[in-house]
Every structure is written in structure tokens, then in C-alpha cells.
Nucleic acid binder design. Sequence first.
DNA 1: GATGAATGAGCATTCATTCAT
DNA 2: CATGAATGAATGCTCATTCAT
Lengths: 174, 174, 174, 174
Amino acid sequence: MDTATRLFAELGFENTSMAKICAEAGVSKGLIYHHFSTKNDILREIFSTTTQRMAEISASSQESHDPHEQLLSLIERLFDQLQTDKSFFQLNLNIMLQPGTRSVLQDLIRERSAYLLASVRKIFDKIDPVNSEVSSYMFIAELDGIALDYLSIFNSYPITALKKLMIKRYSPKA
Amino acid sequence: MDTATRLFAELGFENTSMAKICAEAGVSKGLIYHHFSTKNDILREIFSTTTQRMAEISASSQESHDPHEQLLSLIERLFDQLQTDKSFFQLNLNIMLQPGTRSVLQDLIRERSAYLLASVRKIFDKIDPVNSEVSSYMFIAELDGIALDYLSIFNSYPITALKKLMIKRYSPKA
Amino acid sequence: MDTATRLFAELGFENTSMAKICAEAGVSKGLIYHHFSTKNDILREIFSTTTQRMAEISASSQESHDPHEQLLSLIERLFDQLQTDKSFFQLNLNIMLQPGTRSVLQDLIRERSAYLLASVRKIFDKIDPVNSEVSSYMFIAELDGIALDYLSIFNSYPITALKKLMIKRYSPKA
Amino acid sequence: MDTATRLFAELGFENTSMAKICAEAGVSKGLIYHHFSTKNDILREIFSTTTQRMAEISASSQESHDPHEQLLSLIERLFDQLQTDKSFFQLNLNIMLQPGTRSVLQDLIRERSAYLLASVRKIFDKIDPVNSEVSSYMFIAELDGIALDYLSIFNSYPITALKKLMIKRYSPKA
DNA sequence: GATGAATGAGCATTCATTCAT
DNA sequence: CATGAATGAATGCTCATTCAT
């Protein structure tokens, strides 16, 4: 699964053949098909695992009770990860956007996004319950947009400046 | 090219075979290869055409001289297009993110993003020259993030609420 | 036809597409098909022309009446051509040997080889009528073998040494 | 590989499609590509195998210590094979001459011809060390030329007469 | 004489998947 | 748990040839 994750990230799901995964992982085709029933299955497994890891991160940033501190923690963790694990985020964007993989993951995508939205909204409820829905969507859009632009659109990106701006906007005291 | 655009958007570039394009377009394989030298070539042609259309939109929203009005115009046009041409935007995100297509379009992506950034920055220069760079990136990130979330992440999305929020933020008088 | 000859020699008949010939010759496909009805037709035309040129060479070396001088002249002309027009001889060997082209040229090959044999035999009849048939075949085999080895088998070939040996063998006084 | 060899000989390499080979051999395309990575690879494998067989023949005719007996043995074996395995020799000539296949086999051709030359030269060294190089080349040219003319140029060929002539020339006592 | 758009069969190769061992 | 031979449909692309202009 590690090998598959890496190759999907590097080459894209459709351009990664089972043969390549086998070769890189040093196992036989038979063995992979002994553990996963299809190539799509591997993808779903990867996506699920990732969702779990995201949930853990999100949970861990809710240690504080102050919503602004929670947002600060979330922003910092996310920017950290973004810069550390570029290809990991790229993979996630990429499989959610490509029609082929997207349809395979439909239910898992829905599940993950609902969970993340709920997490964020719990924080914004403490700040401004009336507008918490739209604030949450906007907050997520900003983070997603920055990730997208940083990872895939611009060649050189002022990522730290944007991080500071986000922090100023959402955790002004910090 | 219309058929190809539609199929790439519906199925993804890698899942759209030349045979499918030919069948849908009602022409022979030979003819397509008489006009485009590779499948990648079709993709590049589509991407270039799209960039041109985007440039036209961006140019047309610079009729006014007031920067806030320009931003308002830009936001309104973009949200309009987003809701009208969902699959068209989806295609553009998708091919910029997938490694296979991304590498084919590298130079064109760079060109387009540089152009769009410059366009936006020209507006923000009038509002706050000191922070115009980071403001521009943030503005673009917000729009890209909303587009991404609307098109590919959330199942039901409060798109009009987010549009209002964007307008309030960037064109407060409107 | 010049372009076709060159490309057939460089790339082989099967690897030379009509499109390439057109491009190199700077004419349209339509025009070529206006003059030649098929690709095979071009090949036949080239082969015929070549046979004519060979006949002229053979005829011109029969100016002398002394058979040894005739052989000397033949050998000298042939070795000259061999070293000057390598790709031309290569083409001729190659199309006579490849099954696809061979069957297209069957009648022309038979015609050419019969003519050349007769020419040579006329000379050997003057030297030793009893063995003239086998002598002729052997003489031709030697020349063909040298050409074959020189053009296609060995990397560096002592072509002048072999020329001397042939002259010594067939025109001892020279 | 047997099927491929036969078809390459009958139709030529370029005119033999993988589909034909599969159909004749009664196996699937996938299987062939499981064992050979390309069509060129099959050709190389065939050529190598042939070289090995040639080396064995050449070695076995060096049992005697008398050079004339060695030449006699070589000539006899070669004429035997020539008449038995016509299409096999045709294939070998044909792939060495066609530019497409020739470039695929370049290194193998060089290797084979160097080996054969060395073998022959070892014999001629015993007869006339001073002229052994040119004698070897001439001997090979005669055999190659006879093979070429017999297989591909003349329609009816006095092959036994030429064999006798060769024997008389190189192994006079026999 | 000259063009080039159009065809459709054919080609080498790839790939997810199956299955006997 | 593990192998790798085997399948066959699919893929991007090429090519000789035709034909309306």
C-alpha cells in the first residue's frame, strides 16, 4: 500500500499499472490480488486510511477550548503538512477530481468532507453561531484554495505570507 | 474538439480513448490524426483555447476604473460561469492536477497562472500597493477554493452565500 | 522517384511511408498517386530504371574484344560503383531479399538476373566454352558475395585487397 | 519462437504482425509479451540462437587437423544446410540487409561476423599465413555469394556444380 | 496537373484480472 | 501465503489509398 500510494501520487492512478506496483513493491501479482480484490480496492483503502489520519489531526487540534486557538492549531498543522507532504496532498486532490477515481470513491469523499465540515463548524459555532455555516465553508475554501494554488497552479508561491494572513484573520491575538 | 472537451470532462483524459472521441464525433481516427498529431496535442489545444477565453473575461471586467467594481465584476462573472459550466471548470482543475496531463501542459499552466495573477494584481495595486501581492494570491485562493469545494468536494454547497460573502469582502459598497 | 529511392535505401521499403516521401519531396499525396498507382508501383519503376543502368554499364564494358580485358573492365566498374553508391546497392540487395518486396518484383528480378548472366557468359564462352556456365555463376557469386560482405556484414572490409585478388584471378596480365 | 522464425522467413519481419504470430502459435498476445518485451526482442533472440548454432557447426568441422579437410567439412556442411534450410538462410540474409532490422541487430551482426571470420582465418593461417586475411574474406565472399544467388537471385541454380568447384578449389585432394 | 481532407483496417503494445500450482 | 503464466479486450497511433475540388 505504501508503494501504491507513492506511485499513484507520482504517476496518477490511471498511469500506474498493477505490474509497476508489483515490481516496485517486490511482490508478485498473485499476492496483491490475494489481499485486494481490484485496483480500485487499493485506492479505496488508501483513501480511507488517509481520512482516518486527517480525523486524528483534526481531533488533536481540539485540545484547547478557545476556538481561536483551535483554528490557530489547525492552520499551523495544515500548513506544516502541506509543506512536508506535498505529494500526499496532491494525490488526494487528484483522485477526488478525476472522474474515474472520483466515482470509485464517491461515498468515502462524502463521508470525509461531511466529517471535516462538522469539525470546523463546531469551532465556528463558538465564535459566531449565526454565520457558522458560511464561515466554515469559507474557511475550508481558503485552505483548499491555498493548497491547490500552492501545489498545482503557481510555480513559486508565498506560502508563509499566506499562512500569516490566515493566522491574522482567524486567530488575531496570536 | 468540442466532443473531446466534453468527453475529457465527463470521463477524464485517461479514460477517454481516441476511439470514443471518434465515435461520438462521427469521424474517423485517421481524420483526427490528420489534424492533431497526438492525443496530448488535443489536450493542449483545448487548454490554450480555454486560457484565451479566460483572458477575454478578465479583460472585459476591467472596463470600470474603480478597483472594487472590477473585483465585483470579476466575482460575478466567475460565479456565473462556475454555475453554468460546471464540467468545463472540473476539466480544468482535473487536468492541472493529474500528473500525466499536468506534465503535458506544464508550460501552458505556468503561462496561464502568471497571466491571471498579473491581472488580479493590477487591481489590488490600486487598493493597497504594499500588500497587493499577498492580497492577490489570497483572492485567487479563495476563488479557487470555492470552485474546488463546490465542484468536487461537497455534495450540496451554499454557493450563493459564499458569493455574497466574497462580494461583501471585496466590494463592500455593492 | 529520387526521394523515394533515397528513403527506401535509408529506411527500407516497409518503413518508408508515402507520407514521408511526400514530405521529403515537397509534393502532395494526390500528385504522387496521380503518377504512380500504388507504392509497389514506385518500387517497380525504381527497380526497372536500375536494371537499365546496369545493362548500360555491362554493355559499355564490352567494347574491347579480349575477354580478360572485358572482365577487368567489369570488375573495375563494379568496385568503383560499389564504393561510390553504397546505399544504392544496399537498396537493391534489400528489396530482392525481403519477401514482401521480392514478390512484387519477381518478374523484374528474373529478367535482370537472366540478362546479367547472359552478359557474363558471353565473355566466359570465349575463355572456356566447356565450363562457361559454372564459371559465370562463380564469377557472379564472387562479386555478389564481396558486395554483400562489404555492404552489410563486416564493419571494416579490405575492399581493395579483394579487388586486386579478383583482377589477378580473372585478368592475370593486368 | 519457432512460429515467429517461420513467419519472419515467409513474410519478412515487417510484414509479420504480432497478431499473426499469436494466431499461428495458438497463444495470446499477452503471453508473448509476458516472455518477450518487444517484437524486436524476438528477432534478437532468434538471431542469437542462430549464431550459436552456426558456432557449433563451425566448431564441429574443426575436428580434423588438416586445414583442407576442415575446409572440405565446412563447405559440405554449409551446402547441405543451404539446401535443407533455405528459408532459414533467407531469413538471416534478409534481416541483416533490411535497414529496420539491421539496426536492431547491429551488435549481434558484428559479433557473429567477427566470430566466423576468426574461425575461417584460423584454418587459412595453416595454409598460407601471409595471405590468410584476404583468403578468408574471399572464401567467405564466395560462400555468401553462392548462398545469395542460390536463394534469392536466380531461379534455377547449378548448386551442385558450384559445390564441386568450391571443393576442387579449396580441398583439391578430395 | 495538383491539393489535402477523409477513410478504416491494421499495428505494437499495455493492462487488470484469473487461475493452476 | 505466494508465484507467475496466461488471457483478451483496449489503447494510441500509422498507413496506403481515395476522392472532391
